[in-house]
Amino acid sequence: MNDGNYNDACSRITLRVNGAAKQLDVSPWTTLLDALREQLHLTGTKKGCDHGQCGACTVLVDGRRSNSCLSLAIMRDGAEVTTIEGLAEGQALHPLQQAFIDHDAFQCGYCTPGQICSAVGLIREGRARTPDEIRELMSGNICRCGAYPQIVAAIEQAMGHEEGR
């Protein structure tokens, strides 16, 4: 690298998206969200505010939940990205996806992929044990339809808390 080695044209990057390596040509200013939606046509990841204020764009980057709208794709070169499209295994839904259906944890469905990806991250982080902790640590995902109580119930189900209640 030298100091003059700036790049303002398209760059070829590689993302491992839902387990498959994808090569993309991105501009420096292309966000991970736009790359997923516009280039890979993975429109399950939603654009709700484009400013990190709603959580609809939440995906897992190297296993951690992140706002894809505030990530520049070029900075994620080489990263492992999991989107809502990558959670089910064939026809078998991820336990959280099934729990969301069981508890009617959505209405319009637009925030749902972000809620589910966020919940996957939440469970992996292992910091939420009580419903109040789930509420606090899921507060980065806004649901305007107001399905919050059902979402918390779905997450508890997926955590395996259901039996203990």
Binding site: E85, Q97, Y110
Partner: peptide
Amino acid sequence: VSRVDGRAKVTGKARYAAEHA
């Protein structure tokens, strides 16, 4: 009854206005 469109919504397959190619 669980939503008949639930599966499409939890898997990201439901396409909204800006998502049609």
